[in-house]
């Protein structure tokens, strides 16, 4: 079985702060991996390694290997823009651009140099269908994205990420700002998207991790405490710390 994402002996420092310690982890294609742990445990930082969003922060230093589709993405000649096309991202707060619904989804195509309007139109529709938003927005494609509800905006952001055909989608607490119904919709969507994408999701919500993921990784103080099948983690965690965290006894 080949692994689409792998890190080996990965260490990350924010200036002097050792944020991630010797993380070895491999993720398979077409699975959902949940990263859980208390705030500040390094799970979001770990997520942002895979599309090099950590580059935007000053003073970040990395040692070890981060491989995406077999390639070390921290090599000198890595094209970051190209990497981010392959590794999409959905953020905690829905952040649609101040454009129309159509243009939001088309944005990624346009910045990647696609001008064929017919192609863009088809791709926008396809992405919206995939993100289960098409039926709700097909009659108002030229309305502002801000007119949508929070949950719809988040699904729009997912459609926006899907449009450029990534193979991996990173999700940083994608439902934490949404109401329970919208959250359930996003979770169903993640389950559907697994067919075609590899998904890594950071979540504070243990039940969410349990519901959507195939594998779960528990981070604590920058260390990977336990990583395994979600079923195993939630029925029979090997580590005492994992057990205490998922049962709500600390963290």
């Amino acid at each position: 079985m080949n692994h689409i994402i792998a890190t080996e002996k990965l260490n990350l420092f924010y200036n002097d702060f050792h944020a991630l310690k010797d993380i070895n982890m491999k993720m398979r294609a077409n699975t959902v991996t949940a990263l859980i742990g208390p705030s500040g445990c390094g799970k979001s930082t770990y997520l942002r390694l895979f599309n090099r969003m950590n580059d935007l922060i000053d003073g970040v230093k990395i040692t070890g290997d981060v491989r995406v589709e077999g390639k070390d993405i921290y090599e000198k000649n890595t094209d970051v823009v190209d990497l981010r096309r392959k590794v999409g991202m959905v953020f905690q707060k829905p952040n649609p651009f101040p454009k129309t619904i159509f243009e939001n989804v088309a944005y990624g195509l346009r910045v990647n140099g696609i001008n064929d309007n017919g192609f863009i139109k088809d791709k926008v529709e396809q992405s919206l269908v995939q993100s289960a938003l098409w039926d709700e927005v097909k009659d108002k494609m030229n309305k502002s994205a801000f007119e949508l509800s929070g949950g719809q905006q988040q699904r729009l952001c997912i459609a926006r990420a899907l449009a450029i055909e990534p193979s991996i989608i990173l999700m940083d607490e994608p439902a934490s700002a949404l109401d329970p119904i919208s959250t359930a919709k996003i979770e169903e969507l993640i389950y559907e998207l697994k067919q075609n994408y590899t998904i890594v999701i950071v979540t504070h919500n243990m039940q969410q991790a349990a519901r959507v993921s195939d594998h779960t990784a528990f981070f604590y103080l920058g260390e990977l405490i336990e990583y395994g099948e979600t079923k195993e983690i939630f029925t029979n965690p090997k580590d005492k710390k994992t057990q205490n965290y998922i049962t709500g006894r600390f963290g």
């Binding site: 039940q207 349990a210 519901r211 979600t230 079923k231 939630f234 029925t235």
Partner: peptide, 9 residues
């Protein structure tokens, strides 16, 4: 059943 309880509450 155990998994269903644990994962889906």
């Amino acid at each position: 059943c155990e998994n269903l309880f644990a994962l889906f509450n």
